[in-house]
């Protein structure tokens, strides 16, 4: 406990951590301020007009669907310029992800229910970057400056010292992420209430937002551990940054291109970014034209699914593997 306390003090005193927190607050403040300035509380007439436009848009969708069905059944001969899909269920309003709502017709009005999720994704992206960089610099700087050696002279238990560092990092990042996300969402909720619209904040909305939030926090912790592990293996903060840049260029860009050229099936399965997306969104569908190759029917859509469970396993295996390797190497390494 004493070691964790000491580590927490060191972590919070790091200039880089303080800088990243300031950047987070600035990004947060700029986003909130621009939202506040660009939004206004809609008047009754604006609301009535928006409701009317939304209802009309929904009616148009329904009418279009009915027309498609009628043409398919041969009941109506339509204008040849009109485009209808071969399968009318594709434009069935009931099967749409979302239907037009009044908020869609209120320009310059911030609606919390519509914007909360994209805003949360932005925060998660920042926190993932924050966790990775802070995790890498925390151990990287300590290894190069001799701080770890100093500590080991006091507590000559390498695994304990490294575990205390990692545990402190993950705990601190988790608490900061929780506080930041709660403050962030609360601020925008207040903006929605006072200078915009709250939107439809039912149980489904909150559970969906909560799920994204929870998955986002897991991703932030995984990124922090990954940065920490790579910097430990490479002895420097720059090792983690270099590994990240090399992975992005060599694998995500280079290998993706090669896999496409050689027509490798399901190439997205091999990309970490796909798994991150699948985990964060609760699953993902990817198009691959090879799936339908040789298929004659219209039922083949050419998509394959990546479930969040498999993606989580992949992310855990990579992070866990590198972290275990970091501990194993650190236990045996000469600290000079």
């Amino acid at each position: 406990m004493n070691l964790v306390r000491a580590e927490l003090e060191r972590l919070s005193a790091r200039r880089f951590v303080q800088l990243m927190v300031v950047l987070l607050v600035v990004a947060f403040a700029v986003t909130a301020a621009t939202t506040l300035v660009g939004s206004h509380k809609p008047s009754v007439s604006e609301l009535n007009s928006a409701r009317g436009q939304a209802a009309e848009a929904r009616r148009d969708l329904e009418a279009n669907h009915q027309l498609c069905l009628a043409r398919q059944n041969g009941d109506v001969v339509g204008d040849s310029d009109d485009f209808f899909p071969s399968d009318c269920s594709a434009i069935d309003p009931i099967r749409q992800d979302r239907l037009p709502i009044p908020a869609d017709f209120l320009p310059g009005v911030f609606t919390f229910a519509d914007q909360a999720e994209p805003l949360l994704y932005f925060l998660i992206a920042f926190l993932v970057l924050f966790g990775f960089l802070v995790g890498a610099s925390y151990i990287g700087a300590d290894l190069t400056s001799g701080g770890v050696v100093n500590l080991l002279l006091w507590r000559p238990r390498r695994t304990t010292v490294l575990a205390a560092k990692l545990g402190t990092l993950l705990g601190a990042v988790l608490v900061l992420s929780l506080l930041a996300s709660v403050a962030y969402l609360a601020t925008f909720w207040v903006i929605g209430q006072t200078a915009g619209l709250p939107g439809r904040l039912d149980g489904e909305f909150w559970s969906s937002l909560g799920a994204v939030h929870g998955r986002g926090l897991v991703l932030v912790l995984l990124a922090s551990a990954l940065g920490f592990a790579i910097a430990t293996l490479g002895r420097h903060t720059s090792a983690a940054l270099g590994a990240l840049a090399a992975y992005a260029v060599v694998w995500e860009l280079g290998a993706r291109l090669v896999l496409e050229i050689v027509d490798a099936p399901n190439s997205d399965l091999f990309m970490l970014s796909s798994h991150i997306g699948a985990w964060l969104n609760g699953g993902a569908r990817f198009y691959d034209e090879q799936i339908c190759r040789g298929s004659t029917g219209l039922s083949c859509e050419g998509f394959y699914t990546m479930t969040w469970g498999v993606s989580l396993l992949v992310l855990l295996a990579i992070t866990g593997g590198l972290t275990a390797a970091a501990f194993a190497v650190f236990r045996r390494r000469d600290l000079i």
Binding site: N2, R5, A6, E9, R10, R15, S145, G146, W154
Partner: peptide
């Protein structure tokens, strides 16, 4: 280890901490 005090070469300390805070941190850790 609690009975052994050691310095090996020139130890590097955290530049932003005061001398007092550096030692207090080590005291906490130990």
């Amino acid at each position: 280890a609690g009975q052994v005090g050691a310095i090996v070469e020139s130890p590097q300390f955290f530049g932003n901490f005061s001398g007092y805070r550096t030692l207090r941190l080590l005291a906490h850790a130990g």
